[in-house]
Simulated scan of single mutants.
Amino acid sequence: MSHPYEGMPAQAFWRKTVSAQAWAQLDFKPSTKFKLTPSLKIATAGSCFAQHMAKRLESFGLSHWVVEQPPAGLTPERARELQYGVFSARYANVYTVRQLRQLVEFAFGLREGDPPVLTDKGRFFDGLRPRVQAGGYDSLADLRADRAWHLSQVRRLFTECDVFVFTLGLTEAWVEQGSGIVFPVCPGTAAGEFDAERHGFVNFEYPEVLADLEWVREFVAGVNPGMRWIVTVSPVPLVATATAHPVIVASSYSKAVLRAVAGRFADAHESVEYFPSFEIISSAQSFGQYLEGDLREVSPRGVDHVMRQFSAAFVEAGERIAVTASSIAVQAAAAAQVECEELLNDRP
């Protein structure tokens, strides 16, 4: 070899891969550190986009492990309304890595004090998951009992699951002054009232996000050494920003930080893989073909492409199943059911 590039595989060259192929045929994940099999307990968490991934795992013959099951007698409609099965436990959307860290801290008794409680019209709402109990709780005792059960199931999840799929969504968040507890959405949007003296804005930076993610990995490895990770970055932009920047600029910052963290995290650990759902949807070379009319939401066709790539990469003998009209219809129906508290930041 006269220089190192002569020995590189075709995937290393733009001309041989990107320029020479249709976008739908481009292989975004030619190899992985591990494969997924039906016997594995696969848990999911993260932003709204992670819900799409959770819905599709079983179609590939995999097990989406739902540890927090609805109580007996609850109708399927009511169970869905209360967000049973949306993720592996009823933590609702975990938008920031700091949220994930504090969830683990509360579940394993590493944080003192109770999480915040929000009130609205005589009803009680869990500050860490204000939309998970539609209409709120009748009493503070009911809220605390349900929270205790939920955290016990989160503890079981991290103790027993084989693979944890986490989608990084946001860097912006609102925190409770003093305790530093981070909310999934700004108080006053989903429930409760905003208090400028009590609630502060934070936009997490690369070192903070990476440190939180590394802390979670290290802690969980202590209770479940065999757990592996698949990390992704949500391709869905911010619905609104609390910074002084235009939302499209603020969103670019947020995604850049999260993508950099996810890449560093995966490169540093054999037990962690990165899956490029962000690149499949958001690369300029996709010509925005997978976006809805608002140029923000991912279309069912886009979700289908992401999950076909996921199957090809992680599932033994996985195939890039052709898109069909029926599969698009199914995805469209599923997309309409995605729970996304962030939308409350920009209510019409």
Rank of each mutant, 00 (worst) to 15 (best):
Pro4Ile: 07
Tyr5Ser: 13
Tyr5Asp: 13
Glu6His: 13
Pro9Val: 05
Gln11Cys: 07
Arg15Ile: 08
Lys16Cys: 05
Lys16Thr: 10
Gln21Ser: 15
Ser39Asp: 15
Leu40Glu: 09
Ala45Ile: 09
Ser47Gly: 02
Ala54Pro: 01
Arg56Gly: 05
Trp65Pro: 00
Pro70Trp: 05
Pro76Gln: 13
Val86Glu: 11
Arg90Tyr: 04
Tyr91Ser: 11
Asn93Asp: 05
Thr96Glu: 02
Arg101Glu: 14
Ala107Cys: 12
Phe108Arg: 00
Leu118Arg: 11
Gly135Lys: 10
Gly135Ala: 12
Gly136Ser: 10
Tyr137Ile: 09
Ala141His: 04
Ala145His: 03
Ser152Trp: 02
Val154Gly: 10
Thr167Trp: 02
Glu172Tyr: 01
Phe183Pro: 00
Cys186Pro: 00
Ala191Asn: 09
Phe204Asp: 09
Glu205Asp: 05
Glu208Trp: 00
Asp212Lys: 03
Trp215Met: 07
Trp215Lys: 04
Val220Leu: 12
Gly222Gln: 08
Val223Ser: 09
Asn224Ala: 13
Met227Glu: 02
Met227Gly: 07
Val231Ala: 05
Val231Asn: 02
Thr232Glu: 03
Val233Cys: 05
Ala240Ser: 11
Ile248His: 09
Val249Cys: 06
Ser251Val: 04
Arg259Thr: 07
Ala262Trp: 00
Phe265Val: 12
Ala266Asp: 10
Ala266Pro: 01
Ser271Pro: 04
Tyr274Ala: 12
Phe275Cys: 13
Ser282Ile: 06
Ser282Glu: 10
Ala284His: 05
Ser286Asp: 02
Tyr290Pro: 01
Leu295Glu: 06
Arg296His: 06
Arg296Cys: 08
Val298Glu: 03
Pro300Ala: 03
Gly302Pro: 04
Val303Met: 01
Met307Phe: 09
Ser311His: 01
Ala322Thr: 14
Ser326Ile: 07
Asn345Arg: 09
Asn345Ser: 14
Asp346Val: 15
Pro348Trp: 01
